[in-house]
Design a protein around this nucleic acid. Sequence first.
DNA 1: GCAAAAGTGTTGTGTCTACACCCATGT
DNA 2: ACATGGGTGTAGACACAACACTTTTGC
Lengths: 193, 193
Amino acid sequence: MADSTAHVVVGVALRVREGRLEVMSAEAVRASGEGLEEALGRALDVPALAHVEQLDTRLLPDGRLATVYLGLVPADRVVPGDWTNDLDELAVAAQARLRAKLSYTNVGFALAPAVFTISELREIYVAALGHDVSSTNLQRVLVRRGVLERADGLRAPGRAGGRPAALFRFAHQRLTVTDEFAALRPPGSRASG
Amino acid sequence: MADSTAHVVVGVALRVREGRLEVMSAEAVRASGEGLEEALGRALDVPALAHVEQLDTRLLPDGRLATVYLGLVPADRVVPGDWTNDLDELAVAAQARLRAKLSYTNVGFALAPAVFTISELREIYVAALGHDVSSTNLQRVLVRRGVLERADGLRAPGRAGGRPAALFRFAHQRLTVTDEFAALRPPGSRASG
DNA sequence: GCAAAAGTGTTGTGTCTACACCCATGT
DNA sequence: ACATGGGTGTAGACACAACACTTTTGC
């Protein structure tokens, strides 16, 4: 009864680099009596992750039991490891989770640098979502929801010229649901701004 | 290495009964080499569940590792067990998940009888969501989304009279996302029905 | 001046809530 | 007739996508 199958913690980290979504996976055997967090800490560089959440617990093909975590790394953070572009089944599940949450939460904070222009944020969203995003609408949606706020200063234009870009930052660095339930809201809950 | 902590599967079942949300929890120790499903089968009456999904994997206060599943039972199905109205922390998490999914998926199918009137469905939603729901809008939202469809026949009125109610059924008996991403949809995705 | 990049104004559409009103039945 | 419960019509509020237009820079 004390002997159950070995339990491992698997980390799947995602980040956006040069317009592409990159993955890195790692696993650690969980020592007897050890918490999930400790094992996750050995699997991934957790302090480097801006956001972590549990994805799934499943039996691996080899019969071991694995608890899978999704970690997100800001684009400007240097995290060594075997980053790759090809997504295995687990990475696809992680991306699906990320895609969904990008649209109704502020998870973007975990992929973006501390301060950025809308164009830079747009690139991140395009890579993570896998489809084009209008920077006009991206800005408006996120500002209206209170997800983004202005940071001081401007980014000087490149050699090609152009208007200097305003800098923004995420208003919160913790996951928040920003688009609560499109339908079936409680009665009398129409004011939102 | 082979000796990790004992792993248990915990099932949290929810149903609506007499206008109240009820919970039943159970757990089963997972035998060596056994899958999660088998243990879940011993913990809950799985064939009676119209929908099952994984909620969380966590360390219990006693140090055991538990994988928690959420199961939903249709209101008219007879499932013996120790059903109660007071929700512990796990049950609250289960309810939160249910509440969220009620608004952007068709999970309702797993709580409702095969065929029902809008009023009956409304009662279920009220109990699960914890706030009032207008039957007018409930009907319109779910029909517009293609979640509900008409069933043949009418329900005769009670002794107090009233117009006979139309019968409806859920169009699908498997979880489907019906309100995909409010914002940041791919370009050119405006037509919907 | 012209191209490039950023940002604002504005319009149209879809989806929701709220509420007025009509329909079908029992007594 | 009238109370009761079921259902439809419709108006108003948002939030969003799309696109035209203005602003600010480099060359």
